[in-house]
Design a binder for these strands. Sequence first.
DNA 1: ACTATAATTTAGACAAGACTAATACTGAAG
DNA 2: CTTCAGTATTAGTCTTGTCTAAATTATAGT
Lengths: 239, 239
Amino acid sequence: MAPASAAEQDYLKQIYLLQEDMGRATTQMLADRLGVKPPSVTAMIKRLAEDEGGPLVRHTPYRGVELTERGLVLALEMLRHHRLVELFLSELLGVPWDQVHDEADRLEHVLSEDLEDRIATKLGNPTVDPHGDPIPSREGVMLERDLLRITDLRPGARGTVSRIDRQEAPVLQYLASLGLILGAPITVESVAPYGGVITVRVGSPRGEAVHSIGEDLARHILLTCGEANRNQAVREGTE
Amino acid sequence: MAPASAAEQDYLKQIYLLQEDMGRATTQMLADRLGVKPPSVTAMIKRLAEDEGGPLVRHTPYRGVELTERGLVLALEMLRHHRLVELFLSELLGVPWDQVHDEADRLEHVLSEDLEDRIATKLGNPTVDPHGDPIPSREGVMLERDLLRITDLRPGARGTVSRIDRQEAPVLQYLASLGLILGAPITVESVAPYGGVITVRVGSPRGEAVHSIGEDLARHILLTCGEANRNQAVREGTE
DNA sequence: ACTATAATTTAGACAAGACTAATACTGAAG
DNA sequence: CTTCAGTATTAGTCTTGTCTAAATTATAGT
C-alpha cells in the first residue's frame, strides 16, 4: 500500500510506541530507542514530514513529533506485522518468549500482505501477542482491554499478569525466573511508601514465592483484576 | 558467521547459481539476474574482491568472476536459507509453489541461524525444496541426484519430473497448467531436429495430454529416469 | 590482420542513512 | 531577568549501492 523503507518503518513504529506510552515523542527518546544519534533522528523526521504523497509526521521544531493519519496507518501495519510474527514464531516454531521480539524486528519489514494474511489465518486471527500486547487488525483496530499497572494497585489487590510491556530479552528472562509470566496470578503484598519498591506474591493466594520489584519494572507489568478488586484498587492520584 | 549486507548476499548467491548452470559468471549475466546495470555489478565485484577479512570473489577484469572458498560458504548459506524458507512457506503456510521464490528472496536475508535450525528441524531436515532444488546442509553439502534434462533425452525416453530450474512465477504457472509439476510422469514423444521444440506426453504412458515445449524451457525441466532408460537415453555430444 | 559490435570498466553523480562538531533553542534556577 | 544545562538542529562528511555517459577491451567476420 505504501512504500516506506525499513528505516522509515522503524521510526514510524517507534514514534507510535512513544506516543502511546510516554504521551509524546522527542528526538532524544527516539534516538535512544532506535540506537541512533539525535541528528540522525532530526534528519529522518524531516524526510518523513515531506514524504512524497503526503507527510507521515508533523514536526514542531524543538517540540517533538507526532504521527499524521497516514503515518499512523503505516505504524499500525508494522505493529501488526511485528506482533503477528512474534506469535507465529512462538506458537509454530517454539522460539522462546524472550527471543521473539528481536527476530520479529527484522522479519516485520519483509512480510508481504499475503503472508501476513496467511499467518493471521493460521493463528486464528489472534488479538494479542506472546507478551500480551494487542495485535492491530488489518484495519488498524486494537482490542481494548481493561488492564491495570502493578504500580496502580494498593496492597492486597490481586490480579493475573496479562501483559508485559518490555521487550528486552534479559528483562523478560528475569521476570520469567520470578514466575512472572502471562497468566500468573499475583497478589500485591506491599508498596514501599517512597522507596519505589513493590512486593508481590506470585502464585496462589497463600502459596509460592514473594518478590520485590523496582517501580520502573513493575510499571510495565499489567494485570487483569476481578471486579471485586477493580473499584478500590486504584491508587489516588491516578485520575 | 560472516557479516554481509543483503546486497552482497544477493550477488554471492547469484554468482554461485551462474557458475552452476552457465559454467561461469559474467558482468552482464549478473546484471540481468539482479535487475541492475553492468557498472553496478563491476563496482560490487570490486567490493567483494577486497572484503576486509579476505576476498569473497576472484575477479579477472573483462573475464568474469568466481567465488573464493569464503564466498562459496556464504553463497551456500544463502541458498540454504532461501530453499528452506521456500519449503517452509509451501508446507506450513500453503503459499502456492509459484510464489514461494519471491517471498523467500526477501526473507532469506533476515533469517537467524537459530530460526534456520528450527525451520530445518520442523521440516525434518529436508534435502529438496518445492521446485526440487537441493537444500545445502548446515555444512554446505548438497544431495547429489542423478537427473537428466529433457533436452538430453531422445524420443521414447520416460521419466518423472523431479526438478524445475526456473523461478519466475508466470513460467511456473504455465508449466503447472500443462501438468508439468514435480512427480509428473512424462514420455518424450519427439524432438524436432533443428527447431528446438520438444514434444512430451504428460501422465501415464498412453494417456493424457501432449505438449510442445521450447528447448530453452525444456532445458530447465529435470527428470529421474529408470535404469532402463538411463544408458541409451543420453544424446550424443553430452559427454 | 583489421574492424565493427558487444561487453566491460572507469568516471562522476546521486539518494538514503548514519556520524561528529558546532550552533541554536528551551526551560528551570537563581 | 539572566544564566546555564540540556536538548534540538544545522552543517558537513562518509558509506553503500545505484545510475548515466564515456572510454576501453574482446571477439567475430571478413
